[in-house]
Design a protein around this nucleic acid. Structure first.
Lengths: 340, 340
DNA sequence: CTGTTAGCGCCTTCAG
DNA sequence: CTGAAGGCGCTAACAG
């Protein structure tokens, strides 16, 4: 491994000059610059990141914290976050919290403050006050996707509005028996995305004079097609409370619901209307009406925000940016049948 | 930020003692050890990773290179690789190659050798000779999933066997008109997984005396349900070559094929048998017969292999470990109808 | 425009 | 069992 001194010796200049020539950050005569570059190239010189970090305090590395990587929302967000960060010259180190609480603690108390990263990006993970404090001590910018974190800039959609929008769409089409499939989130380390969507759903119902029935709400344990499928079967098979429309709080759940309806001999949308949330690629394939939340767009903005903060820590940005959502109407919803 | 000197001063010992007390790597009296730990804790001392790296040469950080993160195989592998690595005390920095060739070059020529990582893990990315050479120069262990890399230990399933196993299963049930949906991989930066599966499919056919027809092979551009759907429609709608069985080279494709068949009024498996590959969770949900490749198991072994190599660079391991596959028969395949 | 000189924060011999 | 001292490789003043 050639070091900066090797390059300096070989080029007949000082290490300082090598540093300047290679970083381009200071005045160096064009000829020494090209000379140094050539020598560095020939020797296969690659600056040591740790030495650079030790002296500058900058790592050119961002810590991205996610609760899982193998779920749609997170892998999608991660994909674009990584792409954008890389374009800006940063590496990404991944802190996946799915391994349990012990690990989570060590991430926040050890890894992140260990001067390994210049900033932290939280994708849908709610941090406790101590966790925030631990990071604040190191004085690193924090940006978050999915919910507010004290002292951090964040981007989120309004999940209550999402629930209302979906439900209002169904109500406007004349449905009154509207069920919902959601997640019960007791985990206080994630944001209450699904609880908020449910709140929006119930508010919409009440504002239209419809009293939500408990039999209309089905909780599942994860956002998977199979879960949506079985939840919808319960809902649609209920002889007393069968809905004419279902609001599924994710598109994967909605797909499951659609398949369940078909398997029960019900037609979508004639017999049951279905709305999802996400605008997942499956929603397009299955023609499911959904609430688009443009994860890619959110992730891009998140990166831009972080880059500005890195550039100027005092940069004025709103603490919470509410990302717009929109209803995409497709073939899975239609007017309620008028009673015979 | 408290540094080691602060802790030393506060505890009334030397920095050397602090270092020893905290790392546990050398003899320190129990009482000074506890004292130092208490002080470190109180001051919120966290050792600087870069200083540690600079002096030891070790980063406690692994570079994981993936072609994409938002596809099933990769996000699944990444999830377990990360989990296992974290357990072993390593951080993971992610090198996602989906941003294009420029980025790819800089990953291999700059980032990876930049003393940022102790070892490199390639998930289904084929490295060119120069890329391998660049890493070899820095003398870092490399392990790979999905295909052989010169000078690296790797783990892979035998994709040709996978293709044969799936096809033989269909053949054994009396099918002779067997189509395949696959990916045409011209990209020489990935391994030829799908081409190998196709080779296995064709070999199996020929060995049974069936001549593969070109109309039986449908190439798609990515492994998505929608792609499998449209490919299967073409296949099943062909008046001269309609197959009675389809081998889809991934489960997502198989799901699409199954939905297409149903939409065309064909029953699965009575009218068409379908086999996939992966044992994706969707295959279980849809009851699709598949070739299980246990990605999680492969990823775990990959991490174990890397850890051994890190521990002892001379550690003897086979260069290529062939991971076993197995056929999981579910409801999507059945005996061919005897001709009327 | 270029060289000299200090460290950045820690680990690790080498003495005691 | 503990302390002192020397770097790891690089950049940032400060001089020239």
């Amino acid at each position: 491994m050639a070091g900066i001194v090797d390059v300096a010796r070989e080029a007949g200049v000082s290490t300082a000059t090598v540093s300047r020539a290679l970083s381009g950050k200071d005045y160096v005569s064009q000829e020494t610059k090209t000379l140094v570059q050539a020598v560095a190239e020939r020797l296969g010189y690659v600056p040591s990141a740790s030495a650079y970090t030790l002296v500058t305090g900058r790592t050119k590395n961002i810590g991205v914290v996610v609760p899982y990587v193998d779920r749609w929302f997170f892998s999608t967000a991660l994909e674009t976050v990584d792409r954008e960060l890389v374009k800006a010259g940063y590496d990404v180190t991944l802190y996946n919290l799915s391994s349990g609480d012990d690990h989570r603690n060590s991430v926040f108390s050890k890894s992140l403050p260990r001067k390994r990263v210049d900033a932290v990006m939280c994708i849908s993970v709610k941090m406790s006050d101590e966790e925030i404090a631990a990071l604040a001590k190191v004085n690193k910018p924090i940006v978050a996707l999915g919910g507010p974190i004290a002292g951090a800039k964040s981007i989120k959609i309004n999940d209550t509005s999402a629930g209302r929008l979906a439900t209002d769409h169904l109500l406007a089409m004349g449905h009154t028996n509207i069920a919902m499939i959601g997640l019960d989130e007791k985990d206080d380390k994630l944001f209450n995305v699904f609880n908020e969507r449910r709140a929006g759903y119930e508010t919409a119902l009440k504002l239209s004079g419809v009293e939500p029935r408990s039999a209309w709400y089905k909780a599942v344990s994860k956002y998977a097609i199979s879960e949506g499928y079985s939840a919808a079967k319960q809902l649609l098979g209920d002889p007393h409370n069968a809905p004419t429309a279902i609001f599924a709080s994710s598109d994967e759940l909605a797909v499951g619901a659609m398949l369940a309806a078909k398997d029960m001999g019900l037609k979508v949308p004639e017999d049951v209307s279905i709305v999802g949330v996400d605008n997942h690629e499956l929603a397009e394939f299955f023609g499911i009406t959904t609430i688009d939340q443009n994860v890619t767009g959110q992730a891009e903005l998140l990166v831009r925000t972080m880059l500005q903060l890195l550039d100027d820590p005092q940069h004025a940005v709103q603490d919470v940016v509410e990302w717009p959502i929109s209803l995409i109407v497709r073939g899975s919803t239609t007017k309620a049948k008028t009673l015979p």
